[in-house]
Design a protein around this nucleic acid. Structure first.
Lengths: 351, 351
DNA sequence: GTGAAAGCGCTAACAT
DNA sequence: ATGTTAGCGCTTTCAC
């Protein structure tokens, strides 16, 4: 916990950076005027303002954020804690959030949690830094720190997770609907022996995708899907599909809880087992990461609408700040079935 | 630039979080003692300390970092600005740095720069936040803010870039050597018509990889490599290779400045042109991202030793903090040739 | 080992 | 529109 060698600085404030006082002296105004010049929506005489800005640039002055944060109670900083950071989908999510907040000149503190405790730790750590908002993208681990967020008065939004009754906003893809859509699509394609490869069992996204899928399969009067477990990883998918195909009752369609596992499944099927996709088996995923469109994979999948989700998350954050006592909203965004070559399409009927 | 709708909080400090004063009152000690309890290496009576910690946990107190930073001059925060954040290699780099700093209870502020100006902007923004250290992973864009970093007294390290004479530490893969290695390897494999697909031209990593490659090719007495440009992207590589193969003098080996372009090249060759790899053409990359080992690609490539690079970067940061006036070091780490199936091996000679 | 007092750099009231 | 004043929450001398 306590570091020995460390990036931490030693002594006290070297105060190497210029302060507002210096600018004030040089520009011949009071500190307040300097401060106002750098404060949104304060009124300063244009000429004075110009002079101040020039001086500031000259000596390289910029307001000290720590001091600013101390008095204003905000830090122009948001915290983003992610679990499952090896899933490329979350790289694009991170990228999207960074892009958004950079435009608004808001800093993003990142934390990649290796496990459940990691999420709590990360959230708590960021709370100490007075982040103005917290985004928790940890698809389905139960976290006890949500209350801490609310107690600290930090607007919080859950990304791809909901904790019912937690009084926290959340955004997610409609995973239930996604699962159902996939069941319909595969059924129409004439598949009768379906299989599902789970991600992490504790993950709510995984559960919902499965539930939607299995429910719809049942409604269609088809046999219950076989199940395997792939831990949301490439290697996990690759091995899971081998177990599936060796099991005596080989499926003709495999729906994976995310794209990465589906890539593993494709490689397992083609390379390890010498089977053809979709000739022998159809394979589908969930996410639509960039690679899914590469011809090597051509993965039929459910697209999570990343941009919409991010916009929604940010909107919720803004709402939460405007109206901290407001009711918690839970935005659900429908995924979109993306057709590619990894799954058999329905054969056209003779008319 | 100026946001209108905003995550920013409005009013003044709600001071919703508990302060050291409250803890002090409840625990019946002075504020100083509370402070000491949470300060590394301060001496407090064990019994008192225990009581304080209990109270703190009770009411959910943790020291306010802004206040702490204001007086101590450090923030337990580092800034990480990256260009080319769509390259998976940098996802693993980010992941590695996060892991490292989280262990040390240091926060990481991330910035993904879309272009050169973005790098400068990101660095400058983070400087205002008093980051204790800055890591700039922007493989080869010239940046004028390095001086700002030094002026602010922030230890800085360049990741995969060097700016000679800048008096800033840096770590990078030995890209020149990597290029040479690849030339040797392809030559031994019997390739005589080499091609190189450039990433971004301004990128120093790209230049070095090419220079090493071309120099060694010349030394071996082989014809100068053909050149194409792929912008470091999948799509760029895919199109570049088509131009290359249509050019009348089709190469028998294509070396790409990074793995992602190589994946594009593989798909371009196999899917778009119906060629076989490595039967018709050998393909190699640089980075060794996780996907490179997937059988769909089986990419022969030069591995950048991510972990070593990160360790070196952190060590340099620590050095810079201990000895701010020290000479700038430039650590160069040799890449490692990883053999897979995308490039022809030398045929065994009859003895 | 502990308390009292000063102050980090800034912004927000309150004056003018 | 500008100056004055107070104080955000903490750490750190300086006494004891």
């Amino acid at each position: 916990m306590a570091p020995n060698t460390t990036v931490r600085k030693k002594g006290r404030a070297k105060s190497t950076a210029p302060t507002s006082a210096e600018v004030a002296t040089i520009a011949g105004v009071s500190r307040s005027t300097v401060s106002r010049t750098f404060t949104q929506g304060a009124s300063v005489d244009p000429v004075t303002r110009a002079r101040i800005i020039e001086v500031a640039q000259d000596i390289g002055y910029a307001p000290n954020q720590a001091a600013r944060s101390l008095i204003s109670g905000r830090s122009d900083t948001v915290g983003l804690v992610m679990a499952s950071f090896d899933n490329p989908f979350y790289h694009t999510v991170l990228s999207g959030f960074l892009d958004h907040f950079q435009r608004r000149d808001i800093r993003v503190m990142c934390h990649a949690a290796p496990d459940i405790d990691g999420v709590d730790e990360g959230v708590r750590a960021m709370l100490r830094y007075n982040v103005d908002a917290m985004i928790i993208a940890a698809s389905g681990m139960t976290s006890s720190v949500i209350d801490d967020c609310r107690r600290s008065g930090v607007s919080t939004v859950l990304f791809n997770r909901t904790i019912p009754g937690s009084r926290v906003h959340s955004v997610q893809t409609d995973n239930l609907a996604g699962g159902r859509t996939m069941a319909d699509f595969l059924a129409i394609g004439g598949h009768g022996r379906m299989a599902y490869i789970h991600g992490l069992e504790q993950s709510s996204t995984n559960r919902d995708r499965y539930t939607g899928f299995a429910d719809r399969v049942a409604e269609l009067g088809l046999p219950e899907p076989q199940q395997e477990f792939g831990e949301y990883t490439y290697q996990g998918g690759r091995e899971a599909v081998k177990r599936l195909m060796m099991s005596g009752n080989a499926p003709d369609a495999v729906f994976c809880a995310n794209d990465i596992m589906a890539f593993g499944v494709l490689d397992g099927l083609r390379t390890d087992l010498g089977l053809s996709v979709p000739g022998d088996v159809s394979v589908t995923g969930f996410d639509d990461v960039p690679m899914a469109s590469w011809p090597s994979f051509g993965l039929t999948t459910i697209r999570q609408r990343r941009n919409r989700m991010i916009d929604a998350a940010v909107a919720l954050l803004d709402t939460a700040i405007t109206d901290p006592k407001g009711k918690d909203e839970c935005v659900s965004i429908e995924g979109r079935l993306i057709l590619r070559e990894s799954a058999r399409l329905p054969s056209p009927r003779p008319s």
